[in-house]
Write a protein that binds this DNA or RNA. Sequence first.
DNA 1: CCTACCGATCGGTAGG
DNA 2: CCTACCGATCGGTAGG
Lengths: 215, 215
Amino acid sequence: MASRSPRKKTAEKPSYHHGDLRQALLDASLALIAEEGFGALSLREVARRAGVTHAAPYRHFADKEALLAAVAEQGFRAMTARMKARMAREETPEGRLSACGVAYVLFAMEHPSHFRVMFGPHFTRPLELGASEGDADAFGLLVGSISDCQRAGVVREGQPQVLALTCWSLVHGLAALLVDGKLEASGISTVPQAEALAEAQTRLLLRGLVRTTGD
Amino acid sequence: MASRSPRKKTAEKPSYHHGDLRQALLDASLALIAEEGFGALSLREVARRAGVTHAAPYRHFADKEALLAAVAEQGFRAMTARMKARMAREETPEGRLSACGVAYVLFAMEHPSHFRVMFGPHFTRPLELGASEGDADAFGLLVGSISDCQRAGVVREGQPQVLALTCWSLVHGLAALLVDGKLEASGISTVPQAEALAEAQTRLLLRGLVRTTGD
DNA sequence: CCTACCGATCGGTAGG
DNA sequence: CCTACCGATCGGTAGG
């Protein structure tokens, strides 16, 4: 078929000599994790999928952890954007608070590999997020949302950080159980199902489990 | 020191010729995960730590997944026992419900490697728990506890399974965040801190975030 | 439960 | 970004 002569390498295959290999490696990592699981992730296999030799990734990442850190960082940005977008559709503070949590769960469902990298025990150091610009980070959005609700008088008193931690636990737990398939036994596996569940659980946290007089 | 003559192998080293190698392999797996992380887990290294050759584990486990399944099964039994023990100290239905969740978080803090194996994405098939005897499984305990609270009139109406799923999400999320060290930035890392946090979050879920007249 | 062996993959580097 | 190479580890099996 093709001659093996070493010259005329003029772009027969995507060799990324001038393309964005860095991004290609990140994409390949996510695809690999999604298809083969975490155990299959190696720099060599990632390079293979990106169509380069196994030495090439070292031009962009010092080691596997650096690659995963880049994946996680991109994931955090995407998740924050997802939350902002869904919150923007709401017109009340409690609507935004709820949207914040639902978006968290939806992001996990739609980007399970990203989610696993972001929250797995893969990093030795804290994962600097480029000194995230003020309220841009996800937890900051949540805390701010709680504060807004308190100012509007719809959420009880208390340190916003503490209340936010409870909200985070709830949506993080739901997301983790969904991503790891632990709710498939309960017949929950699709995105719409997850969305409905996230909304129901958020409502429940707001109103509380305890039976009230106005119930 | 010791002669290398092949005879007289009379128990100089723990060789498990008559001991419980199976249990030793399970313990070694947990220690390995705790010390070196998941990536370091291999049947060969586990065998090495147990003091046997790398072919020995195959006498007890077909492959790595079978070993991990055994670890997980043991973990589920221990977790259920932990929950039962803590629930038994309580005298009210809501006390038992709360204790149920707190015990879940405490188990995770005290056995992080077990927790990771139990809820990680490591298994291809559903992990049969030996057809857990009726209400003995953890989720069953939770659902029963919710039902009791409803009968006592302290928890609102609704399918117990649905309410239980919300409780599970909350404590699972808190446990996962703790185990993976994501709350260390918030200064939470000890067992007592985790216990206090679990109790606070459980209370919050019961009462709800929404400001009520009797607040 | 051990010895001895297989093929395969891996992280990493030298040198271009 | 590639070729060529290093030492090391791995899962798994044969045969005892």
